[in-house]
Amino acid sequence: MNTIVDYAKGGVEQVGDVAVAHRSPVSSYENIIAGLLRQKRLKIPVDSSDGVKKQAEAIGIPVSGKSIELLRILSDAQPAGYLSFKGETTHGMISPNYDSRGREKKGTVRFQSVLGGFTIRNGVWLPEAANAIYLAGATGLESKGMGDCHSIPVSKDPEHKLTVIGAISKGDINIAKTHAQHGVRESGGSVASSLTNGQLGNVFAPDSIEGFSGFGKPVELTGNEQPSATFFIPVSYLENPEQAFGAYITDGDITPEQIVNGAGYRAINSRGAVIGEFTKAMEG
């Protein structure tokens, strides 16, 4: 079966190398994950397509008080989970919250949601693989050092490359020339969601890519949300971080950031766009 990940791989070579965010070794998070697994497991009733009522387990993290510190630590590992906020529960991934050039880390964290998203199959509650990879790519763009065009050449920065792709998709090269993604991020948006909602480009929407229908609006979590927000991590996510934590997700030599770039490239290329050299597009 051809998946969106296979589809993206076709564009990865054209996009070329992109920088990979510096991340802590995944083993560094093991004590945190183990600590979460010791917490009280919330029993969540689940309907089943075979008509049998079942239960799933999750750990709840209220977004307030000391939890913000925990979420900030976890954010580097990019855990997937569910944010319950203002009466809505959305699936997504927590990301670190750096400034728009990846230099200064903020005391808050960000939640990047994905449209569509998860599955429970045969009793195993895990993110859909394709969605997890795309979320890992989208949240990886917000890691330390990403988005900078001084310490990383523009041609290697995945956020700048995606901005060029977005600009071409809208036929508005000024988006690339002005490096519009910095402004988007400073105003609370993300490159991934702005390539879905049209702000930086029409890449992941309006047409879905191989069933992937793009990213939702990110939420910056400060700990002072009113009404209060809660982040839930399913126990099965904690037990299988290689499937649910962005920092653990890889596909051989290809990083999630490359996958997101490759899919964007292919999407607009298949719509007839001709993509030139990235650096030139940014320099005008």
């Binding site: 079966m1 998946t3 990940v5 070794p25 083993s27 560094s28 998070y29 093991e30 004590n31 945190i32 994950i33 183990a34 600590g35 697994l37 010791r38 599955t119 199959r121 195993v124 895990l126 859909e128 693989a129 394709a130 997890a132 990879i133 904690l238 037990e239 299988n240 971080p241 290689e242 499937q243 653990y248 997700i249 890889t250 596909d251 051989g252």
Partner: peptide, 28 residues
């Protein structure tokens, strides 16, 4: 580490170190 990500075809084996609550790697 999973090398071949396809939807719902992950190896679903919890990391033993995580289950055992092993501490993270020390680094100077």
């Amino acid at each position: 580490m999973n090398q071949n990500l396809l939807p719902n075809q992950f190896e679903a084996t919890p990391t033993p170190e995580i289950q055992a609550g092993k501490k993270g790697v020390e680094f100077d």
